[in-house]
Write a protein that binds this DNA or RNA. Structure first.
Length: 321
DNA sequence: GAGTAGGACCGCCAGC
DNA sequence: AGGCTGGCGGTCCTAC
């Protein structure tokens, strides 16, 4: 199988962190046999020095011709996105036209402005940095903007919110391509939380989770240790030593999702690992992940992941087998 | 597929 | 005053 080619399209005025994200996440992904699963390269509109919004400059060797061979194109932000007309470089549309029809295109932060200007987001749902949402809405009325998610996935076109949500987007793509086990291994190596669903609020009051010995951290640890058992809101709040009302409020402020929604995500994560790594029948997987019935697992799987447990298992065990 | 019951979520407000 | 907490109750969701 040919290595999947990821091309990062950078422009003047980029944010160094955003360029590092796809290189790190895709670059670290390995097959079970230890082979790299992606080749990550960088191109720009005119090869040479590319300015960043800091005191360092990147020297980019490749021009837009690299896009011809891309399987996935990542478009990070540039400071020209904030200007009234956006990035008006005439070489930009020509470069985008080189992207083959089968390739996926994903934006980080205000890279969504580039995708929108090219018409790639018309009639679709997209997201961008929460601070740029009003500007984005004005300039691209044909795009539905969801300001409350970390990333959107429309199959071929994906967008992510501000800066670090690019991590979530790239991990999501690795997970989509190669399953939870590979993506979790990359996350562990990069020391980021394994997975955040796209539907999570962008504006999280406390971006760094509370330590495990804090009340909310204890409740989460306890939930993960008892995932196979029925867990209610009252029990979680009891673990944290606060009322259900305070627990719900603090949890949402910290995690960006409600406690039970978080719990379902954790259970789906457990279910996915079991589907990939074991031969347990689906009803046993459901029980082990804390879903009361296989039907409940199927419903949540379909709703949040857009597929069925059986199909998910075939996709990933078949590929590695 | 509809009906029901229980639970979750969250705005509101009073108390500390 | 201002922030945090937790009870109440309406609404919505989901499991059965």
């Amino acid at each position: 199988m040919a290595v999947h080619r990821v091309v990062v399209l950078v422009r003047d005025g980029l944010i160094p962190l955003e360029v590092g994200i796809p290189h790190r996440i895709f670059g670290q992904a390995r097959s079970a046999g230890g082979e790299p699963l992606y080749e990550v390269r960088t191109c720009t509109l005119r090869p040479g020095p590319v300015r960043t919004d800091t005191d360092l400059t990147f020297l980019v060797e490749h021009g837009p011709e690299l896009l011809r061979g891309a399987d996935t194109v990542i478009v990070p932000a540039a400071d020209s996105d904030y200007e009234p007309g956006g990035d008006t470089d005439p070489a930009l549309p020509a470069a985008l036209a080189l992207i083959p029809p089968h390739a996926r295109i994903a934006s980080i932060c205000t890279g969504a402005f580039v995708l929108a200007a090219a018409g790639l987001l018309d009639g679709r749902t997209a997201t961008t940095h929460w601070r740029s949402v009003p500007d984005f809405r004005c300039r691209f009325p044909r795009v539905r903007v969801d300001p409350d998610v970390l990333y959107t996935d429309d199959g071929r076109v994906l967008t992510s919110a501000g800066v670090a949500s690019g991590l979530d987007l790239c991990l999501h793509l690795v997970r989509r391509d190669h399953g939870a086990a590979v993506a979790n291994e990359v996350a562990r190596g990069t020391v980021v939380p394994p997975h955040r669903e796209g539907g999570q609020a962008q504006f999280v009051r406390q971006p760094v989770p509370e330590p495990a010995d804090s009340p909310l951290g204890r409740a989460r640890e306890w939930a993960l240790a008892h995932l196979a058992e029925p867990i209610g809101l009252a029990e979680l709040a009891g673990q944290a030593g606060v009322s259900t009302r305070t627990f719900t409020r603090r949890f949402r402020a910290e995690a960006g999702v409600s406690p039970m929604h978080w719990l379902i995500e954790q259970r789906l994560d457990r279910a996915r690992e079991l589907l990939e790594r074991s031969d347990l029948p689906v009803d046993r997987v459901a029980a082990a992940a804390g879903f009361g019935t296989a039907t409940a697992l199927r419903q949540h799987f379909r709703r949040l992941l857009g597929t069925s447990p059986g199909h998910y298992r075939n996709t990933f065990t078949g590929r590695r087998g």
